[in-house]
Simulated scan of single mutants.
Amino acid sequence: MTGTLRWTDRVLELEVGPVAHGGHCVARHEGRVVFVRHALPGERVHAVVTEDGGGTFCRADAVAVLEPSPQRVEPVCPWARPGGCGGCDLQHARSDAQRELKAAVLAEQLRRLAGLDREVPVEALPGGQLGWRTRVRLAVDDLGRAGLRAHRSHDVLPIADCPLTPVGVLPPVLERRHRPGAEIEVVVDADGIVHAPGTTAGPVVARAAGREWLLSPGTFWQVHPALADTLATVVGEWAAVPAGGTAWDLFGGAGLFASVLAEQVGPDGRVVVVEAARQSVADGQRALADLTWIDWRSGRVEDALAGLADRPDVVVADPPRRGLGRDLVAAIAQREPDRVVHVACDPAALARDVALFAEHGYPLRELRAFDAFPMTHHMECVALLGRA
């Protein structure tokens, strides 16, 4: 293999292999790995190479399917195609097949990074495959037109709508002109009110775990309307903090999990929330003002842990996509909690963290996965790690 080899724009005939993390499948051609989008395992396709850095692999889009998989369906969106939107990776697969593909990715990451042979089904959430996305970020091109970005590109596609969002939400925003180069967040809250540029709506209403939050613009909340309640239920069941106990809620956002943990420990207990986004902390403090035994800490988790002197019974962690990493896993394990509940949106980062916790005597006890992002390769997982 020479370092100067370039296949960009070349059309390859490929036998498509297994699904891989990232929304593509793996094929091989002339000794090189080809990551193919818009294909399914077992298919034979013509694929055009879209990126080639000259190394051991390149990227390609399937532009013609010569032998289709029985799991293949026609995408519902015209932009879910080669050269189209970067958001949907799996619109060409049946809904059950999408979950099977995600489960295969999760199992492969656990084997490769954590040395675990574990099959975990990816569970569907209520609401179906379309209309679930209550939060979407649009980009604006040089002409002021809002749209979605193309796959692995800064190019803005001037779409007319997106079927993943509730019907009627995006067209009014897409029809207007906006400041070139801007980014726009469109949110549909729990009352069905649309929050977007040009609207006069108040705070974003969110409800979960039997409570209500009034969120400021930009405050993080789960995109799928059923996910917050689902996660709160699982985290509560697995945390099981004793009355009067201590729980840490790391990367706690506006306090979704803290609300559940605080109810478990009661007024004689303590819940410490650590969150870097000050606005999220402020929103959480307002929403959970009655739970006075929640101790809110605004700052980086890495910095805040040094100032926490007590031993927690349970640690709940919901880090960003990159996961916890070696240093944070070690810092948590050193405090010797009985259990750690790890919420993760990236299976590779989760598998790495699972392996790290096992090194510190916290093997994986339970694991659930949810199809919180239908039509895409993303999923949400919750892992329970307990002292050996």
Rank of each mutant, 00 (worst) to 15 (best):
H46I: 04
T134D: 15
A60R: 02
W132H: 15
R81M: 07
V122C: 08
G42T: 06
E100A: 13
V49P: 06
G128T: 05
D141A: 07
D161V: 02
A104E: 12
C77A: 03
E123G: 00
R111I: 03
G147E: 11
V136D: 01
L138R: 03
R44G: 09
V73K: 00
A64L: 14
G147F: 10
A160K: 13
D89E: 09
P82Q: 05
D142A: 14
G147R: 08
E51A: 15
V173L: 11
P126D: 04
L164V: 11
R145Y: 01
L113V: 11
P68K: 06
L113K: 10
E43W: 05
V48F: 13
G128V: 05
L148R: 11
G84A: 06
A160L: 09
T165K: 10
G128I: 04
R145K: 01
G131K: 14
P75N: 00
L113C: 05
L170I: 08
V120N: 05
V120H: 11
L40Q: 05
P68M: 02
G115Y: 06
G54D: 08
P68L: 04
G147K: 09
H38E: 02
L40T: 06
D161R: 02
A39T: 06
V122Y: 06
D61C: 07
Q129T: 13
D117C: 01
L101T: 04
P78V: 13
H154M: 12
A150W: 05
Q91M: 03
A107V: 10
D142C: 00
E67Y: 14
E108G: 10
V63W: 08
L66H: 11
L148A: 12
R72Y: 06
V167N: 13
R133W: 09
P68V: 05
P166D: 00
L125C: 02
